[in-house]
Amino acid sequence: MHYLILILVLYLFWLLLSGHLTLFFLSLGLISVLLIAWLQHRMDQIDREPALLKITLKLFRYAGWLSWNVLLSNIDVVRRIWDPKLPIDPVWERLDIHVKSAREKTLYANSITLTPGTLTTDIKDDHFLIHTLTPEGMKQLREGEMEKQIKRLRI
């Protein structure tokens, strides 16, 4: 079933990228999409975890919340770069995490890295190693607002 979805999505992607609607291009697209589906089938025999991301309204709301945060921290980092005194005080500490699944961890670590001023340097079973530009960034992460938002997604 999920190969059918994969083929449909990939073919739509092909149509968007090519923009030509002649028989030659359409059949070329079909051949490459089927080839990719076959490769995907071969790879699934090694990787048991089915990678189907449920795209829900909550995910979009999270994306909006994240981009707002990225904007705010961008302004902060830009201000620090242009300040002649360079008011930075880097911190490198461990951050305990409460999310369990690999998918949530990936999303959490990538969200932290996407936000300027905070950076995930290493991922372990129950904690991340976080490098932040200022102690305030670390304090904000410890409050765990982002983690709460990710837990609420239930992906």
Binding site: V70, N74, V77, V78, I81, I88, P90, W92, T113, L114, T115, P116, G117, L119, T121, H131, L133
Partner: peptide, 12 residues
Amino acid sequence: FTRVHAAGVTET
């Protein structure tokens, strides 16, 4: 490590 933060500004 701090330079990575600076590069992040341009990319995000």
